[in-house]
Design a protein around this nucleic acid. Structure first.
Lengths: 192, 192
DNA sequence: TCGTTTGTCTAGCAGTGCTAGGATCGATCC
DNA sequence: GGATCGATCCTAGCACTGCTAGACAAACGA
């Protein structure tokens, strides 16, 4: 049934178009500007079409989050693979993480601030999220220290970076000294 | 002019009533449920009255945030004053901070997640926010370590706690082990 | 007692997420 | 080939949002 195949392909294409449009609008004007009307106008379909792909706006955010998780994992791995000591890898990881958050604020929000209906820290967490966590765990496990669960250490490290990223971007931390804060955090968290 | 005095007092009372109502609704049903209509119904005045006190919903969030900052500072000081070593003070501080965030999620969001139109980390930052930061800085300055700016250390410590609080509450960190994560964070951040 | 000011309310605007029901198009069957 | 039927999509509309203009009444000063 080549016809059905084609339709399925077209539907998948349109779904990608929706996610890309949502991401683009969010990155340009913030998530508040991602309304179903603007979105439908952007993809040149009417609003109800959105709801034949996603249960609602929340699921669209979730789709953007999954896309972002894959990219973030790739960025993390690219950064760590270029360093050759455990400590250098972790420093590179921290910088890459914060760099990603700063360069893709809307995607970052979809992943870690907004409600995209995704399940975290659970066995049926979506694969991209698990893999993103793994991309942090790999280099961090090397410096967790004796008797410290690598996963838990990764959670703490991740949370700390998340705090720096969100408080920094919302203007709650001084613009200056962001680099030095990162360095201090890394040097302290790494096992002595 | 006793009449004007009375009116001024009544206005101030009503303003407190608005802030209290916003806080109560937010704490009970989340900030999304704090609509101008529900709020006006709660205080038994019409919507436009809100706008004679606050420029908009954002300012109401800001007012709740300032109230919360004062309470958080008090909680922090109460917790640290009961401990007698620098390390014990910092541990108590961390627990108190996370406890406040968990017990008052809506207020915490008003302070550190939502946009309440408040200026942070600046000379004309509102006094309650400055004082809340000071309540963190006092015990943390003791363990910042040589050659480390106490303010910057406090920022890093605070951001880390903020990350644990927000990721934890949104279900992005495992419910279990929250205490152990806090302990690990504290023990690593404190100067060796 | 009569304006004037102050305070409050009703009514409404433009926008939101989301959906019911009708139209239209294309694939299928006689 | 032409009728039928199902999938696909759109128009129109719901209940809600933050916010405001303009009417109205009460309290005030002259």
């Amino acid at each position: 049934m080549s016809v059905q195949e084609r339709k399925k392909r077209e539907r998948a294409d349109r779904e990608r178009l929706i996610v890309a449009a949502a991401r683009e609008i969010a990155e340009e004007h913030g998530w508040d500007a991602v309304t179903t009307r603007r979105l439908s106008e952007h993809i040149e379909y009417s609003q109800p079409v959105l709801y034949s792909h996603f249960r609602g706006k929340r699921e669209i955010i979730g789709a953007v989050a999954l896309e972002g998780a894959a990219e973030m994992a790739a960025a993390a791995r690219a950064a760590t693979s270029a360093a050759d000591t455990p400590r250098a890898r972790v420093t590179a990881l921290a910088r890459a993480y914060l760099g990603f958050a700063e360069s893709n604020p809307a995607v970052y929000d979809a992943m870690f601030r907004l409600d995209g209906g995704l399940v975290f820290a659970h066995e049926d967490t979506p694969e991209p999220l698990k893999d993103a966590f793994a991309s942090l765990l790999d280099p961090l496990g090397e410096v967790a220290g004796d008797g410290v669960d690598p996963a838990m250490f990764t959670e703490v490290f991740w949370a700390s970076l998340h705090g720096l990223a969100t408080l920094g971007r919302s203007g709650r931390l001084p613009k200056a000294d962001a680099e030095r804060r990162t360095d201090l955090l890394v040097s302290r968290l790494i096992a002595a």
